[in-house]
Nucleic acid binder design. Structure first.
Length: 537
RNA sequence: GCCGGGGUAGCUCAGCUGGUUAGAGCGCCAGACUCAUAAUCUGGAGGUCGAGGGUUCAAAGCCCUCCCCCGGCACCA
């Protein structure tokens, strides 16, 4: 048994989450459930990332207080997570007091350790909105192609990288007024000081992750500013920084720690020290590729700089993007699938299967409704659901719902049980290797084997003259369902739990033996586990 | 421009430490069965593996050149 910290990237809650955001939360929930079902010691944490400029801007647009806005959004997220059966040990938010206190203490410690310095910079400022504008929030005419709506950091039309000062007729993206240059000062994290340690550390990560960091590392790490002139955020703890807040990213990543502190206080168990300070703890981070620098460089560097001996990220399970057809999900262009759209089409657990089976572990993967239709109606309903149902109905009709004895075993039975057990072993190994996309499909493959077995053995015709043989067939078919149930659990916990109740499967762990449901067990009345859905597309 | 990922059957993808006639699912065509939510099972057709060159007894896989798509390039979270 090992200790595991399972984390999902914290969703930034300026808008409703879409499939891509849900992917990490569902992956983390899946993985935590899998690990626990095999007997590991697991803590899973995530939360709403709710500070920073985009939310402040959104609040200005909606004429709301940022806190009221994120209160609403956080509540909505909790409902969404519930609908997708995501039950982490602690899903919290960056507005919680434990987090704020933790972050302030953490940065004071870094200052004490000599990793913080102050520097003056010049930025664009909107006098009307009283806000410093990040590059992206400045729009204007591209000096290269003349595109009117170029952002301060990049022109979407010609793709060139820009500086806000290069824009012709720069305007504030919020109100359209012309911004002014204004001097300000910020506190910086001295990342270069840790260059060597970070370079060494990065070598312990997946090659895929290293690829994304190559250019960053070869160009040399640069200091990273910790503070912002925003009003909405955690007040910076440094002397003279009373009117500054901490840059969202630099505080949100610390939620992985504060979330465990919070959990510890709630449960009264010694969790923080036990998990976070144990170098043997296996920490797994489910994130998108866009978050790699923060998780593979900034977070470890912060942890190193604290000199507390915190567990550095061990496995960064980053994924590529889920595309909608050929296009990237886009809120402004209404491309993609958002949580509430998804739930109006199918229940959350169907989506868990679809999203995990689509996990873009290798390259970008693309979502389309035809495939989703197939995954739900064919994989889940026709193959898995129908296999379970046909077996249990047969058992009900011919054996009064009582699992018969294995009276007349045959070579085919043995082959079948071996194949299913092999699938289960694959399933376990793939999960430990974080090949979730493949692991998730194993219960469907098991049901396919079951359907083949059942069809080839034809118990419905043998029942006429060879009942002992039929007893064995049903015995084996029922056992296979127990194994399917185990593999299905992390994917669709509620469905699997319902199935477990029906077949009287009491043990929750991996069935070690083929014979998991003893002969003589009276199973419950079978109800179809899945329903077909109708999708308009 | 630099860095990274990708380009394999109509579609979605696997295979990529080089080695039998390149695989799966869906879709399509044909057949079987009736226990089951008309579900299932069996068989078939279909690809010069982005382009060209090279290394090798042997390349989808390694090397070189080029083309196309996506992402990153650090005060966007």
């Amino acid at each position: 048994m090992s200790k595991y910290l399972v984390f999902s990237a914290w969703p930034y809650i300026n808008s409703e989450p879409h499939l891509g955001t849900l992917l990490h939360l569902i992956s983390a929930d899946y993985y935590a459930r899998f690990l626990r079902s095999t007997g590991e010691d697991v803590i899973s944490v995530s939360g709403s990332d709710e500070h920073g400029t985009p939310i402040e801007v959104e609040a200005i647009k909606q004429h709301k207080n940022p806190k009221d806005l994120t209160d609403e959004m956080h509540k909505k997220i909790l409902e969404i997570l519930n609908a997708f059966s995501v039950e982490l040990d602690n899903y919290t938010r960056t507005e919680n007091e434990v987090h704020k206190e933790f972050v302030r203490d953490f940065y004071l410690q870094l200052e004490k350790n000599g990793y913080i310095f102050k520097q003056t910079t010049v930025q664009l400022y909107c006098e009307k909105d009283r806000i410093f504008l990040p590059d992206r929030l400045v729009v204007g005419k591209c000096p290269y192609c003349g595109y009117e709506k170029a952002n301060g950091d990049q022109c979407d039309n010609c793709g060139r990288l820009l500086e806000p000062t290069l824009l012709i007729e720069p305007k504030c993206a919020i109100c359209g007024e012309k911004p002014v240059k204004k001097e300000t000062y910020h506190w910086f994290f001295d990342l270069p000081k840790l260059s060597e340690e970070i370079s060494e550390y990065v070598k312990t990560l997946d090659e895929n992750v290293q690829g994304y960091l190559k250019s960053m590392l070869s160009e040399g790490l640069k200091p990273r500013s910790i503070t912002r002139d925003n009003r909405w955020g955690i007040p910076a703890p440094f002397k003279g920084a009373e009117n500054k807040t901490i840059y969202v990213w630099m505080e949100a990543v610390l939620g992985y720690l504060s979330g465990v502190v919070e959990l510890e206080r709630r449960t009264g168990k010694n969790l923080f020290e036990s998990f976070w300070l144990d170098p043997e703890t296996i920490s797994v981070y489910f994130i998108g590729k866009d978050n790699i620098p923060f998780h593979a460089i900034i977070l470890p560097a912060l942890l190193m700089a604290s000199k507390k001996g915190y567990n550095l990220p061990k496995k960064i399970a980053s994924t590529e993007f889920i595309l909608f057809g050929q296009a990237k999900f886009s809120k402004s262009q209404h491309i993609g699938v958002w949580a509430s759209d998804a739930l109006s089409v199918a229940e959350g657990e169907y989506w868990r299967y679809a999203i995990l089976a689509l996990r873009p572990e290798r390259g970008d993967s693309s979502f389309n409704w035809q495939d989703f239709d197939k995954m739900v109606n064919s994989d889940l309903n026709d193959k898995v659901g129908n296999y379970i149902h046909r077996v249990l109905m047969f058992l009900n009709e011919r054996f009064g719902g009582v699992v018969p004895a294995n009276e007349s075993a045959s070579k085919e039975d043995e082959e079948f049980s071996k194949s299913v057990m092999a699938l289960q072993e694959d399933f376990i190994k793939l999960n430990y290797d974080l090949k979730i996309k493949d692991a998730v499909k194993k219960f469907v493959e098991a049901a396919e084997l079951g359907n083949q077995y059942f069809s080839s053995q034809e118990p419905w015709s043998k029942i006429k003259n060879n009942k002992p043989r039929v007893s064995s067939i049903l015995f084996n078919a029922v056992q296979s369902i127990a194994h399917i149930c185990f593999m299905m659990y992390p994917v669709m916990p509620k469905k699997a739990t319902k199935l477990a109740e029906t077949i009287k499967l009491t043990k929750t762990g991996a069935p070690e033996k083929w014979e998991t449901i003893p002969s003589g067990t009276k199973i419950g009345h079978p109800e179809p586990l899945f329903q077909k859905i109708v999708i308009k597309y």
